[in-house]
Amino acid sequence: MAEKRRPKLAVWKFSSCDGCQLSLLDCEDELLALTDQIEIANFPEASRAVVKGPYDLSLVEGSISTSHDAARIQQVRRVSKHLVTIGACATAGGIQALRNFTDVRELIPLVYARPEYISTLESSTPISSHVFVDFELHGCPINKVQLVEVISAFLHGRRPVTPGYSVCLECKRRGNVCVTVARGEPCLGPLVHAGCGAICPSYQRGCYGCFGPMETPNPSSLSEMWLAGGMAPDEVVRRLRSFTAAAEPFRQESERHEK
């Protein structure tokens, strides 16, 4: 009897730091076992071998910030049965989406001596702005335990189990003392998607929002509390504008305080 065909996995990179695809290689205990179950068919960071598509599961890292990439993601979608975006860049535009709040033409000469050599779009956008995305895994970086869950869910044809509640719940579960209540530390936790395991509050600092907004956040409630506590509006704007600045709830709320 012929060997059962292993599903084909592809990993694609767009504008990003490589940290989320690295999370796959950081699954040190699971990596070799995983490759018994799936064929790593296209993962340039790990292999020079490329198996032709179509692919059963594509993991996409990074945001779209050039016209070349805007065309390339269409091609990736065409060869992918399922497409899952991994990380804050792919799900929300990433830190590079800070350009969306300014004129990118003013930024280029600050970094590059010959602006005419640089080709870039005016905004950095998530993958879902360009193609249909089957599932979004949040995080800057993603949590590798959640990554293994997502891969195994797609292998078995079920939805991944990744909670949509806020970091606050994870904090309670860990038994952390609330950094805001106890010390007045500004913390984005009430607005932010769970998944990291409440790392920052466990290290005595407020959450800075790597996992982006949760499913139904109430950003103005938090920012009004900050303002009432004496935080300057420009600091409120900065706190809402980091790795998922372009995610809709954070974008709207930060713009409200800019006026």
Binding site: S15, S65, T66, L98, I108, V111, T120
Partner: peptide, 16 residues
């Protein structure tokens, strides 16, 4: 190197 530029040095201006 065709990795898209991300303009870190410019985006850092005005940050704390």
């Amino acid at each position: 190197i065709f990795e898209p530029p991300r303009f870190f040095e410019a985006l850092l201006r005005g940050r704390s």
